[in-house]
Computed example of a mutant assay.
Amino acid sequence: MKTRLPLALMSLLTFLFASARAHAEPLKVGDPAPAVTATTDAGTRIDLGDAYKKQRYTLVYFYPRAGTSGCTAQGCSLRDAYEELTRQGVAVFGVSTDDVAAQAKFKAEEHFPFTLLADPDRAVIKAFGVPVRSVPAIGEFAARQAFLIKDGKIVWADYKAKTDQQAADVLKVLAADKS
């Protein structure tokens, strides 16, 4: 009996430690933006570290699942404001756990002018510390969050991104940034 308690306790501690490490904290304003490589909706690889240097700002937004109503509203908000966003020097990247085919279909159906990143292995999601929720029998989904990057640093973080207000929220931040 004495050997079971330490073994059970060790198992519990191992589980708690592994769980704590699996849930990284989301990036905060002032943190360096992760220079992670990802796969685009076209199946090509992109280094986000290089992408940050090409525009004044980079918006990396996370959504749960391609083609769902909330994710479509979020993407369409950015699509509809894309001309204004690009005029202000913003490159936009959408990220979900979907594969390349799902991202390409979603982009084509909704006429998104920006790049979607397929992140089924969650490398980008983990690098940004975005929480992932598991839904039994359906799969894992990234939380809806957004990060605005300037000069390689997070300048704005939206941890509870609103689906149809995503572009308006970003444009408000841009209007306030006079640097």
Score class of each variant (00 low, 15 high):
Arg45Glu: 13
Val29Ile: 15
Gly30Asn: 03
Lys53Ser: 11
Ala35Leu: 05
Pro64Gln: 04
Tyr61Glu: 05
Arg45Gly: 00
Tyr61Leu: 02
Gly43Ala: 07
His23Ala: 15
Pro34Ile: 06
His23Trp: 15
Lys53Leu: 10
Ala42Leu: 12
Asp50Ala: 15
Gly49Pro: 00
Asp50Met: 11
Ala24Gly: 06
Asp41Cys: 01
Ala35Thr: 09
Ala35Trp: 04
Leu59Trp: 04
Tyr57Gly: 12
Ala42Glu: 14
Ala22Tyr: 13
Pro64Asp: 00
Leu27Tyr: 11
Thr40Gly: 00
Ile46Phe: 02
Val29Thr: 14
Lys54Trp: 05
Lys54His: 06
Arg21Pro: 02
Arg45Ala: 12
Tyr61Thr: 00
Thr39Met: 14
Arg65Tyr: 12
Glu25Ala: 14
Asp47Lys: 09
Gly30Leu: 02
Arg21Asn: 11
Leu48Cys: 09
Gly43Cys: 02
Lys53Thr: 13
Ala33Gln: 08
Asp50Thr: 14
Val29Cys: 09
Thr39Lys: 11
Lys53Val: 08
Asp31Trp: 09
Lys28Val: 07
Gly30Ile: 00
Tyr63Gly: 02
Pro32Leu: 11
His23Ile: 13
Tyr61Arg: 10
Asp41Glu: 07
Lys54Met: 03
Lys54Phe: 04
Gln55Phe: 04
Leu27Glu: 10
Phe62Ala: 04
Thr40Arg: 01
Pro32Phe: 06
Gly30Val: 02
Tyr63Lys: 06
Phe62Val: 05
Thr58Trp: 14
Tyr57Ser: 12
Gly30Thr: 08
Phe62Pro: 09
Thr44Tyr: 01
Ala42His: 12
Phe62Cys: 04
Gln55Asp: 15
Gly49Met: 07
His23Leu: 14
Val60Pro: 15
Arg21Asp: 01
Ala38Arg: 03
Leu27Phe: 11
Tyr52Thr: 05
Asp47His: 06
Pro26Val: 03
Arg21Gly: 12
Arg56Leu: 09
Tyr61Ser: 02
Tyr63Cys: 07
Gln55Arg: 14
Lys28Asn: 14
Asp41Trp: 01
Lys28Gln: 15
Asp47Glu: 15
Ala33Thr: 02
Pro64Lys: 03
Leu59Val: 00
Glu25Arg: 05
Gly43Gln: 06
Asp47Pro: 04
Pro32Lys: 13
Thr58Glu: 04
Pro64His: 07
Ala22Ile: 07
Pro26Leu: 04
Thr39Glu: 15
Lys28Glu: 14
Asp50Trp: 02
Leu27His: 11
Pro34Trp: 11
Pro32Gly: 00
Asp47Gly: 08
Arg21Glu: 13
Gly43Tyr: 07
Leu59His: 02
Ala24Arg: 12
